[in-house]
Computed example of a mutant assay.
Amino acid sequence: MGAGDVIAQQLVERRGLREHHGRRTLRMVAIGCCFVGPVVGGWYKVLDRLVPGATKAVAVKKMVLDQGGFAPCFLGCFLAITGAVNGLSVEENWSKIQQIWPPVQIANFYFVPLSHRLAVVQCVAIVWNCYLSWKANRV
């Protein structure tokens, strides 16, 4: 989350180090550490117990459960939290979420062992968080 915000500020918004909003980055780090990491990591453990295995069919089942069950609840909470902190618009983010995460998750569940899934999704999330941070903090 913090890396996404730094990238948003430095590469997308081109703020430069003098104009970097450190508090904004710290807010994103706090959301990542206190909410995103623990919740998503716990979900992956639950999901692996619900649907064990690593076949293509299992990966599709996990993606359907993830995107159909977990993602709407998680993203509702996430957007509410970031919205309270940064003024995010739910409508603007929802269409992007639907385009990005299903393909990422099907690959994640098929190719990546449970112990590495959170790391993989967080790498992809850097790009997503960069977008969210930029969108949430546009002036």
Rank of each mutant, 00 (worst) to 15 (best):
M1I: 11
G2R: 00
G4K: 00
I7A: 14
Q9L: 02
Q10T: 05
V12G: 03
E13Y: 13
E19I: 02
H21D: 11
R23F: 04
R23W: 15
I31R: 04
G32W: 09
G32V: 15
C34A: 15
F35M: 08
F35N: 05
V36M: 13
G37Q: 13
P38C: 10
P38V: 06
V40Q: 01
Y44S: 11
V46G: 02
L47S: 11
D48E: 06
D48V: 01
R49F: 02
G53Y: 11
A54R: 13
A54G: 10
A57V: 15
V58L: 09
A59Q: 01
A59P: 07
V60P: 10
K62E: 12
V64G: 08
L65W: 09
D66Y: 14
G68Q: 03
P72G: 06
P72K: 04
L79W: 15
L79Y: 15
I81V: 15
T82G: 02
V85G: 00
G87D: 09
S89P: 05
W94P: 02
W94I: 12
S95Y: 13
S95F: 08
K96G: 00
W101P: 09
P102Q: 08
P102H: 07
V104M: 05
Q105V: 07
I106L: 11
N108Q: 02
N108D: 06
F111Q: 07
S115I: 03
H116L: 09
L118T: 02
C130V: 11
Y131H: 15
S133P: 14
S133W: 03
W134H: 13
W134R: 07
K135L: 15
N137V: 08
N137M: 06
V139S: 13
